[in-house]
Design a protein around this nucleic acid. Structure first.
Ligand SMILES: [Mn+2]
Ligand SMILES: [Mn+2]
Ligand SMILES: [Zn+2]
Ligand SMILES: [Zn+2]
Lengths: 140, 140
DNA sequence: TTCTGTTTTAGAACTATTCTAATCTGTTGA
DNA sequence: TCAACAGATTAGAATAGTTCTAAAACAGAA
């Protein structure tokens, strides 16, 4: 019956991940995980945390993002050269990429079938399958 | 019965694309299109053209690559943040990405079925569907 | 508290790419 | 044949995103 308990969640999240719950990491974790699924860039998150009047350096934002990826709390999505997106949805799913707006939109994993995938090259194993559907503003 | 005629092909290719057949563009087109399908980075291609003792500036390599993409002779493949690959195979196909080696391997378009693709967000149209299968060296 | 290893930080460094503006070249048509 | 001119090339500077460095701050243990 009680609502979400943001602070406790972030604290637990970091503890579980074996990361010291510093002020900076708590602030970033709350911004990332207290809302629904998100796709953010490092600079976006940095701007957000400053706006929330919790100054965190950009280096710390990058450090935290990579630690969160390493802990399986985030995944990195590559759609654009020269800019990474970090995705709070770590379940099996795919993406629309709205090129004009630079926005990612989730496609649930079970809404797409990737069938007949050939065997990977000798000596390699599949780590992940990414389907990116690039969409553009519809011609009028 | 005659073998391939590289020079004539590159010349024709550029003419068809509405691009002046300069020495630099001819050299780059030959390197790109006279062999089978290729996936190169700008720096790789630059190194190749220098080795072929045809000095071309890096700026020109980038200019030409983008012009070739615009003309539909190449497609850009994004798998890594901070580095673009250019693909001479412009037919409908997908990729294995060997993360350890930084190499792309083609998967013919008809070898993969992407089914049940949901409708794109309102006001947008699908431009392209990219399937990237990330593989890693198999654990021994 | 004090201590110790971890984290944060400002700013420098780095990498891939793009830009600038001066020079050069391919093409055209007199 | 050769100006003339638009288009192409170039070296080097600039930019953008990210990573690195090494010094200061901090969290947690004792
Ligand atoms: Mn990264
Ligand atoms: Mn590009
Ligand atoms: Zn997602
Ligand atoms: Zn390819």
């Amino acid at each position: 019956m009680s609502g979400p308990r943001p602070f406790a969640n972030a604290l637990e999240l970091l503890r579980n991940a074996g990361l010291r719950p510093t002020r900076q990491r708590l602030a970033l974790a709350r911004l990332l995980f207290d809302q629904g699924d998100r796709h953010v860039t490092a600079e976006q998150l940095h701007a957000e945390v400053l706006t929330a009047s919790m100054p965190v350096s950009l280096a710390t934002v990058y450090n935290a993002l990579h630690q969160f990826v390493g802990a399986g709390l985030l995944r990195e999505v590559v759609v654009n050269p020269g800019r990474s997106y970090f995705d709070t949805n770590v379940s099996d799913h795919h993406h629309f990429f709205l090129e004009d707006a630079g926005k990612l939109v989730d496609i649930p994993g079970d809404r797409i079938d990737v069938a007949n995938v050939p065997a990977p090259p000798a000596g390699t194993a599949i780590r992940r399958v990414d389907v990116i559907i690039r969409v553009e503003r519809e011609p009028a």
